[in-house]
Amino acid sequence: MAGQFAQRFQLMAGNIERAIRGKREAVELALVCLFSEGHLLMEDVPGTGKTTLARSVAASVDAEWRRIQFTPDLLPSDITGVSIFNQAHQKFEFHQGPVFANIVLADEINRASPKTQSALLEVMEERRVTVDAEPHPVPRPFMVVATQNPVDMDGTYPLPEAQLDRFLMKISVGYPDHYSEVEILKAGPQVDRLPQVARASDVAAMIDFAGQIHVADPVYDYIVALVASTRTNPNLRLGASPRASLALLRASRVRAASTGRHYVVPEDVKALAVPVIAHRLILTPEAELRQRTAADVLGEVMAGMPVPQAA
């Protein structure tokens, strides 16, 4: 089974890579996020392919996807939907917003007001929207792929910590290398021509399978020790929460399955620690002044932490 999972995973990754050239790592991380039932935050400068990656993921799956362009005047109801009085039936009817899709692309999420951003909170964690005290579940699989621009910060609203914590991963796409950029120029935009290589039900089944990947007790200990060490690190003002431990475990299981293994090894944990944990950490002012990043600190923590030696 793990072999089949790996095969489909690689097929999807190869498919997406036709649109995003030379970014295999980012593609695989996005897929890990998808099969972990997590949400993905992509932060990078304009034009590096954030939106393309998100669209490619959506295009590879035969599932419903929507795009929301976040702007300062966007209202919460523009995302979740609204109840409208139907005079014919003499009752309110709920009109679903764009969030009711399998994959939701929240483009430039930091341009919307905090009120609108918070509209995403419930649906990201609870996977349902409550309007007029009535819950409306979103379809499965459900994934929010948000993008944001680290430069040109005028008129933006940085995401609050609570919302950042709800993203399973935060990744950067980065500029392509010379060869890949030449290929992009030659091939032109490919997103619309990508074939659908998986159905929504396949993705749901793969998610269920990944949840059953075996994790040995020492690996649990390793995850907890790694996350706990961020809470006592002198360079960090805020460490990672237990939600981060859960996220790292889920993602590690998917990564193990994506390589055809039916058990998690510490490599999985180490490989995913930075994208899963770093965006949840807040550096101390002294560390920021020394130009340190959360990824640096996390790297140091991992370098000093022994990996489990026996099952």
Binding site: H214, A216, P218, V219, Y263, V265, E267, Q309, A310, A311
Partner: peptide, 8 residues
Amino acid sequence: ANHVRYAP
């Protein structure tokens, strides 16, 4: 080695 350590 990984199999011995972590596989069920």
